[in-house]
Every structure is written in structure tokens, then in C-alpha cells.
Write a protein that binds this DNA or RNA. Sequence first.
RNA 1: GCGGGCGUUGCUUAGUGGUAAAGCGUCAGCCUUCCAAGCUGAUGACACGGGUUCGAUUCCCGUCGCCCGCUCCA
Length: 478
Amino acid sequence: MKKRDEGQLTMDALASLCKRRGFIYQTSEIYGGINGFWDYGPMGTELKRNVRDAWWADVVRRREDVVGLDSSIIMHPRVWEASGHVGGFSDPMVDCRACKKRFKADAFCEEQGLELQVEGKHFVLPEGVQCTACGSKDLTEPRAFDLMFRTHVGPVEDDSSVAYLRPETAQGIFAQFSNVLATSRQKIPFGIAQIGKAFRNEINPRNYTFRSREFEQMELEFFIKPGTDSEWHAYWVNERLKWYSSIGLPESSLHKQVHPKEKLAHYASACTDVAYDFPFGTQELEGIAARGAFDLTQHQTFSGKSMEYFDPDTNEHFIPHVVEPSAGVDRIALALLCNAYREEWVPGAKVEGGVLAAEPGGKPPEGYEARVVMRFSPRVAPVKVAVFPLLKNKPELVAKARQVFDMLRVRWSCFWDQTGAIGRRYRRQDEIGTPCGVTIDFQTLDDDTVTVRDRDTMEQIRVPVKELTDSLARTIGC
RNA sequence: GCGGGCGUUGCUUAGUGGUAAAGCGUCAGCCUUCCAAGCUGAUGACACGGGUUCGAUUCCCGUCGCCCGCUCCA
């Protein structure tokens, strides 16, 4: 169980911190866990909430042209026929036992001039088929990889009761497009946003929480006039990149990945991913796709209900096109955790000096000690302010600290800690990334000032209690 | 899904065919006038199931989970 690899953050080290400090636990851990599912502890819950709140504030509340929706996870099964998820993503696959390669069974047979056979619910390989890679005939039966979770609505489990857990939140938006249009008094261009859980039966969950089978999406469907696709796509790519900076992910670790035209779905005119440099590689946080009129047209066809929009300015009827920024909450939270994690050497009480970056595998110099600090942007930090009485066995300090704590907690997520030496308490907050520590000491009792300690520099300033809220607000920024 | 490695307390590790040690952490108390101090006490683990055995945390099998590589990723 190697924890360090040439000084780079390893996911093992991060997972250990996340468990130790209550960010992320394996789900159902007491029963051995279940692959692809994770729980968020007290700190992780706050972190995710801050991500969602930041997105909702910037994408919905601060705009006049976007409204919210909260649709159900289980929808009419026909929704998934219209979307292409039924059928399209349950292709039967064949594995070669000799060379370990996997193929889509129908294309695999076609390449050899043969046809995949269907017997009832099972697929059967035709005679004479062989591996197109190595020529072996040692092949598995074709198996359907249905990536949607199936369930049954009502007590009777027959074919007519089959339903699916949604594999994306977007279809709830498309299916309610007409209702929202009719009740929100919006005109095109406008968007509908939704945050919620989605479920995909991933073949191979990997990389901690990055590819989970249950995950949370933040999706915006921005409906536009046909022909304006590329300008709105460019607009949203730019907006979304700015947003990632606003939650503390540095531009240097973010990448705009433009999908080449030939790899786009037939209905899409553009798709750009926002990717982050994770320790396990550069991976997608969000995809921004120009999907044309595909989705609404599909639902118009399958439901028989018109999805047309009437433009009063031009007297035109048309099916709106859509630009879709679709982000993963859990992936963003993971990126924030990776980005925040630092191991440092910090000077002890008897040493003058500043914070040093820890050398991997090395020991701190004389008088220095190692610390782990989560350098979250204050906007997403689970706890904004920690409040400490310098000593817990001095009732007058505790009482005064309690007053300060009660004053601050009405505005921010605050943490009270009176246990142990003050330095230990600072370090605890460092590990959950609390930007500000407020300490009430004996001088407070004389002049009503407190010390405010900065997480990153560990420097302290004295601030009068009556100016404390304003002072902290400048640091925290919200 | 395939191949390889791994699984001892909250974390990091030690160890054994006779049920387990330490450090850190956590909690309580004492002490402590700003960066994981000290003292006392408490807490707490052999992933799950089966087999071999008088006896299994240890050996064997299976399952689950984690990591690495391949594969997959609408």
C-alpha cells in the first residue's frame, strides 16, 4: 500500500485524509462496501453543498434567463426510448478469451460477413465466427451490457412494469420543456437547470469517486433559436471555464478539450469538455454540447406532443435548438479535494521562518513539523471559521468565545473547538481546510480584540470583535 | 470484463496455528497565556463465508472490496 509516488499526490493519500476527516467513506462499509458507490461524511456533505450552491447561484439565481427544475428520478420508460438510451447503450458485447479484447457483437459479426442471431432474449454467435484481432474461436457468448439500472414500478415484476433509474437528468428537462415554457414566462433564448442524482451501471468503476454508478449531475439545457448554436456554445464554454476559476481550480490545471467533428454524435454540431489534471490523468469534469433540435424532436416524435416554439418577434414556429453544459458534482468535489491537498513543513514555536513545501519522503528541518492542509477556496470550504477559547479551563475565556461563536455562526458554517492545545486545534482545521481561525485570549478580556489566524500563511492579526464579521467577510468573500 | 498485487482498530504499521503489539488519532480528567507539549485513564482491529485442524487472524477455497495494467466510458 504505497502512499507516495515521487512526490505526487496519490489517491491513496487523499482517500485516507478523506476518511480520517469525514469527507468520503466507502458506502455500506460495515458490509464490505459495494463497488461504484460512495458516501459523503460531514465535511464532504458541506463541500458538495457548496459546489451545488455556487453553481445554482451563478447559473440560475444571478441570471434572468435560466429557471430551475426538479424532476423525478424514475420517469416513463418511453422517455429512454426517445432519448436513445434503451437500445443504443445496451449493445451485446463479445469477449475473446485468447487475446482479452472486447467487441460489439453485431459489428463484429458484420465484419466477417455474418449476422448476429437472436434467440428469444439471447444473442447467439453465428457458426465460424472468430476473433478479428487474433483469430481465436474461443469467444464468450454475446452479453448485453445494459448501462441503465432497471427496476419495477408497482408490486408486480413483469415486463409491463419495467422502469429505469435515470442515467442523466437532462431528459427530465426536455420532457417538461412545454410546461416550463408555459409557466415561467420565459422567451427564447432561455435555460432550464437541474441538479440531481443519476445512475449508470458502469462496467468498471475506477479512480475513487471519479466514475461512480450513482452520481450527481448539474445540467443546464439552454434553448436557442436555430442557427445561433455556435455562438451560444462558445458563450457557455467561456462562462463555465470562468466558473471553475471562481471555485478555486487554477486555470493551469484545467483544459478545454474540443471534440473533433468526426467524433461527434450525428445530431451534435459541437462538444467541448472541461477537463482537470487529476493524479490519475486529465479527465472530464463537464461536457458542453450543442445538441441541435435532436432531443426535443425525439420527444415530439415519441410522445406525439408538439415541442414547437412560437417566436412572436418573427412569427416563426420552430423546435428550439439546445446547448447543454453538463457537469458532475462528485467529479468537481474530487477535483477540489485533489487541488486543495498539500503536505507542508511548518515552523514550530521556537523557529523563525515561513511555510515550506514538504519534500517527498524527507523529514522536516530542525524545529519544523509536517502538516497536511486543504487549501480550499473559501467559497467551497466546508467550514469557514473555527472559534477557540485559548484555554478551556478558564471559564471567562470560554464564555467570551461562546459569544463570538454564536455571533459568527448565524452567517457562516462555523466550528467550535476547546479541546487540547491551541496548535493542535489549528492543525485539525488545516486538515479540513478552514480558512479562518478565531482565538479568544486574555487580551480579549481587556480590549475586546481577538486573533484571526490565516490557514495558508499561519499568520495572525488582532481584530476588534465589533469589526470581526466585516473583517472575516473580506477574507471569506461571501 | 481479463491479468497481477493487496485486505490487522479512525489512520499508519508490527506479529502469530493457541484470538494480537505500537505510534498517531479520538474521548474524559489534570495541566497548559497561540501552532499536533506533558501526565493519567478510556476507546478500539485480524473484510465476509466455507474448508482443513483439538484450535485459524495465520494454511486452503470462494465471495466482497481496494490498488495497478489492459479494456470500456452514451
